[in-house]
Computed example of a mutant assay.
Amino acid sequence: MGRRDYEGDPDAPAANSLVPAASVVVVDDSGSILLQRRRDNDMWALPGGVMNIGESLPDCAVRETREETGIDVEIVGIVGTYTNPGHVFAYDDGEVRQEFSICFLARPIGGHVAVSDESTDVRWFAPGEIDALPMVPSIRKRVDDWRNGNMPAIR
């Protein structure tokens, strides 16, 4: 299914669904970050997706990371909360989604890098390599928040 991202676009279609979601900044011991190249928009992105009924957002983050990248993770913090009503995703089936997303910080604990039906490539990148990658602004903001240390304190 195709997807088009609209952010701050006055011509964007109106949202017709509100969806809780999780994304994940996965950082290994060398400081590299795990990214996937999405099949639906050909952009590099953090692993993540929509929460299912019966699971918590942290469980969603762990599941989505495993499904999309092949890597098992342990959640160690929160990068931030992202709720921009001016950012919607329009899908080919007519859904126009506004997401309420928590971006988690995680460390890898197992698995092997693998593409999924949602990705065409999955790789580890050094933080300095990220700037040259094609990425939607909302994902770049999450990555930049992590790189710049703009994360809430965990209590």
Rank of each mutant, 00 (worst) to 15 (best):
P108M: 07
Q36N: 08
V143H: 01
E64A: 03
P13M: 04
R123A: 05
C60V: 11
M135Y: 07
R38M: 09
G49P: 02
V136M: 11
Q36Y: 05
T81A: 10
C60T: 15
R140L: 01
E95V: 14
E68R: 11
A14G: 14
R4Y: 06
A153P: 06
E129P: 13
S17M: 15
P127E: 03
D40I: 15
S23I: 06
A45L: 08
V96N: 13
E68L: 10
E68I: 03
R4F: 06
T65G: 04
F125H: 00
G77S: 02
I109H: 01
D42G: 07
I78E: 15
P137I: 10
A21W: 05
K141D: 14
V26F: 01
M151I: 12
L34W: 02
F125D: 00
S30R: 01
G128W: 00
E64K: 15
G77A: 05
M151F: 05
G31Q: 03
P137H: 11
I33C: 00
P85A: 08
R155G: 15
R66H: 07
E7H: 10
V88E: 06
I78W: 09
A12R: 04
R147F: 00
C103W: 04
F89P: 04
V50L: 06
P47G: 07
Y82M: 10
E64W: 14
G70M: 07
I75R: 12
G54F: 08
P58Y: 07
R123S: 05
E55D: 04
M151P: 04
G8I: 09
V113I: 13
W124S: 02
D117L: 09
G128L: 07
I33Y: 01
A126F: 04
V115F: 05
R63C: 01
A61L: 08
C60A: 13
N84L: 10
V26D: 00
I33V: 02
F100Y: 12
G70Q: 09
D93K: 15
M1W: 05
R97E: 14
I53Q: 13
I53M: 10
G54S: 07
A14C: 11
A132I: 07
G49W: 11
P85G: 08
G54L: 07
Y82E: 11
V73E: 00
I102A: 09
G77D: 02
P47F: 09
P47T: 11
G54N: 12
C60N: 15
D72C: 12
D59G: 15
I53A: 14
I154Q: 11
A45R: 13
M51L: 10
V96Q: 01
E95L: 14
I139Y: 06
V96C: 10
I75A: 08
G80K: 03
R140P: 05
I139A: 06
P13V: 05
G48L: 05
V143T: 08
V136Q: 14
D131E: 14
D9P: 06
G31K: 02
G2E: 14
Y91W: 09
R97H: 10
A22H: 02
E67S: 14
T65P: 06
I102M: 12
D121I: 10
L34N: 02
L46F: 01
L133N: 03
R97K: 14
D28T: 00
R38S: 11
I71E: 03
R123L: 05
G70W: 04
E68H: 09
G70S: 04
D72G: 09
V73M: 01
